[in-house]
Design a protein around this nucleic acid. Structure first.
Length: 471
RNA sequence: UGCCCGGUAGCUCAGUGGCAGAGCAGGUGACUGUUAAUCACUUGGUCGCUGGUUCGACCCCAGCCCGGGCAGCCA
C-alpha cells in the first residue's frame, strides 16, 4: 500500500535511470504536454532534474481522473503510482498513476508552449524560461561548470579568495565603472569649489563596483602562492553585442613564482579540463545543444580537447595577417590593436584552432604587465596573453605581472596613475616581491563555448545589459 | 555610441495604396499506447507610438519607442 505521508519524492533523473520497477513512487513537477485518449491520458512530467521527462499514464477509471483535465501545459502536479516498463516505444520507464493531484493550474495565458519560441521572446519571460528545454539545459550546465572550476583549482591546491565587490580603485584600466554612493542625487553636498564632496559619502571617498579582482588576488598570491577568485564583475561600458554584459562572472587565478609560459600552460589545461568535465557530466544536455543549437558543437569540443593550442606571438600574428593577402577593414600594423576580424581570421581560418597570442606591444596594455627584456628598439612588448577560441573570440586575457618596483613605477607614470592610490600594490614589490602571473576567464563566454549558445544574454539567468535590468 | 535589419493574433510569420491572413497555441467535438499525436470545426487584431502625404495608409514619408545583428570597448 502507498503511504503518502512518508513517501519520499523521486527525481525524474533517478527514476529514468531505475534498475528495476517499483510499486510505489512519488514524482512532483510540471506538465510539459498531455495527450488524452478515451480510456486514459499520457502526461509528460518534467522536474528540471534532467532534460527528459517521465511519461505518466492516468487511467480514466481512476477516481482522480477529473484532475487530469486541469493538468494543462505548465501546471504543477504530484503523482503517486507504480514505475513500470513502458509499453510504448519512446522510453524505457513510465509511471502508472494511482493518485494524481494538480497543485497549481495554468490557463490559456501561460506563455510557454510546446514549440516555436524565439530566444528573444524567452528573454522577455526570464522568470519562466528555465522551464524550457533549452534554458533548463543551459542552467544545469552553468551549475556544473561552476562546480568544475572550483574542483580544478582546489585539486591543484589553489585557495579561493573573495576580493571586494565595492572598490575605491577608480582606474584599474578595464573600462567604465558603476558608481556606488548613498549621497542625495538631487542635492549632493558640495565642496567650496562646487564639486561633489565625496568625503561625506558612505565610504568617505568615491567608490565603484569592481571591474576585476586581480590586484587584490595578487596580494593573496604573494602570501598563499596559488589562489583564484570567482565572482561577479561589473562594467558600465555601453556595449551592445552578443558577448558583452554589464554584470558577468569571472574566474581569475593568480600564481606566485610563475612566468608567462606557466600561465599559458595553466590556461590551456584549465579550458580543456572544463570541457572534459562538462562532456562527462552533462552529456544529455550537450547532445540537446548539438541537435538544436549548434550541430558542430560536439565535434568542435572534441577537436579542442585533442589538439594542443597554437601559441603565436603578436609580432608573428602581424606577419601572418600581413602575408594573408586579405583586405582588412581595419589596418594591420605593428603597434595597433588586433581587431575582431583579425582574431577571427587567426582562430577560424588560419590556425582553425584555439590560439594563445602573447607578447603584445607595451603601449597597448595596462600598467601592471611585465615589460619584456631584450626587445627590439621601439618595439617594446609586455608579457600579455589572450586566448582566442573559434566562434567567440577572446575568452581569456592574462599576463605576467611586473614584479620590479622601478619598472612598475615607470609604467604607472606613463599611465598617469598616482602612486599614492596604489601604495599597497607597490608595497608588494617593496617587500619580498616575486614573479607572478594570472589571467581572467569570462565565465559566461566559456559557457557559450561549451553550449554553443550564441548570445551571452541566454547563459545568464537575468542578464544586465545597457537599458535592461528587468527581474 | 555608430552602421544595418526588424516590430501584423498568445507564439512563429506571410501580406497588399482599396474587406486583416496562415501555422501553432486556446476552445468544442472525433479518434488513437500516444511521443511537438492526428482530423474537423472554432474564438482571437490599437498591424509598436505620434504626426504627415492621400479620396483612402498595416503599406509611402518624418520623428520617437522597443527588439536584434555587426563594429568599437573587453571577459
Amino acid at each position: 500500500m502507498i503511504q503518502p505521508n512518508i513517501m519520499q519524492r523521486t527525481l525524474v533523473k533517478s527514476a529514468l535511470n531505475a534498475s528495476g520497477p517499483s510499486d510505489a513512487i512519488l514524482l512532483q513537477g510540471w506538465v510539459r504536454t498531455r495527450r488524452d485518449a478515451k480510456a486514459f491520458s499520457f502526461i509528460e512530467l518534467n522536474d528540471g532534474s534532467c532534460l527528459k521527462g517521465m511519461q505518466i499514464i492516468v487511467d480514466a477509471t481512476l477516481p482522480d481522473y477529473a484532475n487530469v483535465l486541469h493538468a494543462n501545459t505548465g501546471a504543477s502536479i504530484e503523482v503517486r503510482g507504480k514505475l513500470v516498463e513502458s509499453k510504448g516505444g519512446g522510453q524505457k520507464w513510465e509511471v502508472v498513476a494511482e493518485q494524481f493531484t494538480v497543485l497549481g493550474e495554468t490557463d490559456a495565458t501561460y506563455p510557454l508552449q510546446k514549440k516555436g519560441h524565439s530566444l528573444e521572446f524567452l528573454r522577455e519571460i526570464a522568470h519562466l524560461r528555465p522551464r524550457s528545454n533549452l534554458f533548463g539545459a543551459v542552467f544545469r550546465v552553468r551549475s556544473r561548470l561552476a562546480y568544475a572550476i572550483h574542483q580544478f583549482f582546489q585539486d591543484k591546491g589553489f585557495f579561493y579568495v573573495h576580493p571586494p565587490i565595492i572598490t575605491a580603485s577608480d582606474c584599474e584600466g578595464a573600462g567604465e565603472m558603476f558608481r556606488v554612493s548613498t549621497l542625495d542625487q538631487k542635492k549632493p553636498p558640495l565642496t567650496p569649489d562646487g564639486e561633489v564632496d565625496h568625503t561625506q559619502d558612505f565610504f568617505a571617498k568615491p567608490t565603484y563596483l569592481t571591474v576585476s579582482g586581480q590586484l587584490e588576488a595578487e596580494i593573496f598570491a604573494c602570501a598563499l602562492s596559488n589562489v583564484y577568485t570567482f565572482g561577479p564583475t561589473f562594467r558600465a561600458e555601453n556595449s551592445n553585442t552578443s558577448r558583452h554584459a554589464s554584470e558577468f562572472w569571472m574566474i581569475e587565478p593568480e600564481i606566485a613564482f610563475c612566468d608567462l609560459n606557466g600561465n599559458m600552460d595553466l590556461a590551456e589545461e584549465f579550458v580543456k579540463y572544463l570541457i572534459r568535465d562538462v562532456k562527462e557530466h552533462c552529456a544529455g544536455d550537450l547532445e540537446f545543444f548539438s541537435k538544436f543549437v549548434d550541430k558542430e558543437l560536439l565535434g568542435r569540443l572534441d577537436f579542442v580537447l585533442e589538439k594542443p593550442f597554437v601559441r603565436c606571438s603578436y609580432t608573428e600574428a602581424i606577419a601572418i595577417l600581413t602575408a594573408s593577402g586579405k583586405t582588412w577593414e581595419h589596418n594591420v600594423a605593428w603597434g595597433d590593436n588586433l581587431q575582431s576580424e583579425h582574431e577571427r581570421f587567426l582562430a577560424e581560418e588560419h590556425f582553425k584552432c584555439p590560439v594563445t597570442l602573447y607578447n603584445y606591444p607595451r603601449s597597448l596594455k595596462p600598467f601592471y604587465m611585465r615589460v619584456n627584456e631584450n626587445c627590439e628598439p621601439d618595439r617594446e612588448t609586455v608579457c600579455a596573453m589572450d586566448l582566442l577560441v573559434p566562434g567567440i573570440g577572446e575568452i581569456i586575457g592574462g599576463s605576467q605581472r611586473e614584479e620590479r618596483l622601478d619598472v612598475l613605477r615607470e609604467n604607472m607614470a606613463r599611465h598617469h596613475l598616482s602612486e599614492k592610490d596604489y601604495w599597497w600594490y607597490l608595497d608588494l614589490r617593496r617587500y619580498g616581491t616575486v614573479p607572478h602571473s594570472g589571467f581572467g576567464l569570462g565565465f559566461e563566454r566559456m559557457l557559450m563555448f561549451v553550449t554553443g549558445v550564441a548570445n551571452i544574454r541566454d547563459v545568464i539567468p537575468f542578464a544586465r545589459t545597457p537599458g535592461t535590468a528587468e527581474f
